[in-house]
Nucleic acid binder design. Structure first.
Length: 435
RNA sequence: CGGGGCGUAGCACAGCCUGGUAGUGCGCCUGCUUUGGGAGCAGGAGGCCGGAGGUUCGAAUCCUCUCGCCCCGACCA
């Protein structure tokens, strides 16, 4: 993409409404624009990141055996009246009416709908287990949306729902998601730590929040350093086999948010392993038994011919929130530092002198070598503007093309994360970028 | 939902107290000069001062109502 023709509006100054660093950088780097309180439009660069995050989530859900579907954003109130949550959910639920006066709502989550959907088809224990997920926009009419996309009213969420015959099988489904989450966040370059959580209005007993560590995180967390030394990607899990040892490792060490903090248990952690940090919740998983399957009329016939009410769990990841969370965890004074896996582009080519034949040729060749993954700054601005925008936008690699280097056939390749610079030929640079 | 604050040009803000017909910086357009870390000079475009009522000869400024947005708290993927 050529910057001279793209819709990537960067801002030199920070808009007054943005308080936290990710919100400021998302506005300044031209990722999003607010359209109403807590509601955002995603511009090209932001959309690419959002889609990259969603892609990783999707790949890990699929790998863990979940199947993707897509449920609507608008739901009938009747569905929620059956579970009793139409009354319970309160003002956070955006209620609307269609032209016939029928009560509808913009879905804040999909337990009722997915359960009804599944109940209409499942009749036998052979239809279990199943895990269905979708990545869809949700709306929760937060009293006070803030922090940009971090706590918006409209947000993109991955939510998965598992259906099992027995409690034991259901706990296995829970562990599958638990492990999938560890991998998902690790692939985005994040340190995500599972922590015991309250189940809130969704209900149930088994529940973990996945918290990523970021200096600017909104909640205080306490954890055992042992959890930070482990790489979830070190080996591929066998989702069909027992995942208990893996999950046990992650749950036997101390980790808690300040709400659940237990001073006694904390004191038992050796002092040199105590880590007190800030965190952001990016995922939440629940096991809630028959809380929805029962009222929604989901039942299947077991091997013995008796009716069984399936056990369920639900598993959320805040996809749009993750974009902000990643920035909170990865930025510096100059701007965003995108982890390679989610970066909108791999390469940002800076043509410092458009119009100079050598610069145009070399910059164009670099860009054209990976057109879908490169952005070319071919604007007529001064070099300083381009350097500043490139750092702000945070693309992992910058190829700086000036007249002097171009004449010698050299590009200056800069790694955004480290600031490291190398003088390379075009081929060498491409080899390194493609890594 | 309780408390507080702010709406003036694309962005950041001044002007409001003490009414007299709108300004600064950045950005934008044109020209010249400049050209490796957010350039210089000159010229220029751009505002129903959030909206509606009212007071007044006259309202960005005073009064009333309304809409929007932000911050703190309680709540939350």
């Amino acid at each position: 993409m050529r910057l001279s023709r793209s819709f990537l509006p960067t801002l030199k100054e920070t808009p007054a409404e943005a308080q936290i660093v990710s919100h400021r950088l998302m506005l300044r780097a031209g990722l999003v624009r607010q359209t109403s309180a807590g509601i955002y439009a995603w511009l090209p660069a932001g959309l690419r990141v959002l889609e990259n995050v969603a892609r990783i989530v999707r790949e890990e859900q699929d790998r863990a055996g979940a199947q993707e579907i897509l449920m609507p954003t608008i739901q009938a109130a009747e569905l929620w009246q059956r579970s009793g949550r139409y009354e319970d959910y309160g003002k956070e639920m955006l209620r609307i009416e269609d032209r016939h006066g029928r009560p509808m709502l913009y879905g804040p989550t999909n337990e009722e709908m997915v359960t009804a959907l599944f109940a209409a088809e499942a009749t036998s224990y052979r239809d279990l287990p199943r895990n269905l997920y979708h990545i869809q926009w949700k709306f929760r009419d937060e009293v006070r949306p803030r922090f940009g996309v971090m706590r918006g009213r409209e947000f993109l969420m991955k939510d998965a729902y598992s259906f099992d015959l027995t409690k034991e099988a259901s706990e296995h489904s829970y562990r599958q998601m638990f492990v999938a989450y560890l991998r998902t966040f690790a692939r985005m370059g994040l340190k995500a730590i599972p922590m015991q959580a309250d189940t809130g209005p969704i209900g149930g007993k088994l529940s973990h929040e996945f918290i990523i560590l970021a200096e600017t995180g909104e909640s205080q967390v306490f954890l055992d350093r042992a959890l930070l030394d482990f790489d979830p990607l070190a080996e591929a899990p066998d989702y069909d086999a027992g995942l208990s040892p893996l999950v046990e490792f992650w749950t036997k060490h101390y980790a808690a948010t300040d709400e659940k903090h237990d001073e006694a248990a904390w004191a038992a952690v050796p002092a040199e392993r105590q880590v007190s940090a800030r965190g952001i919740e990016v995922g939440h998983i629940f096991h809630f038994g028959t809380k929805y399957s029962e009222p929604m009329g989901l039942r299947v016939q077991g091997p013995d011919g008796a009716d069984v009410i399936p056990q369920m769990g639900s598993y959320g990841i805040g996809v749009s929130r993750l974009v902000a969370a990643i920035i909170e965890a990865s930025h510096d004074e100059a701007g965003i530092i995108w982890p390679d896996a989610v970066a909108p582009w791999r390469l940002h080519v800076l043509n410092l002198k458009p119009g100079d034949a050598g610069c145009d040729a070399l910059a164009g060749a670099l860009h054209d070598a990976m057109p879908a993954q490169a952005i070319l700054d071919d604007r007529g601005d001064r070099a300083g503007v381009k350097f500043a925008d490139a750092d702000l936008m945070g693309t992992p690699w910058q190829a700086i093309i000036g007249p002097r280097g171009a004449a010698a056939g050299k590009v200056e390749l800069k790694r955004r994360a480290t600031g490291e610079r190398l003088e390379l030929t075009l081929e060498e640079a491409l080899a390194r970028i493609r890594g």
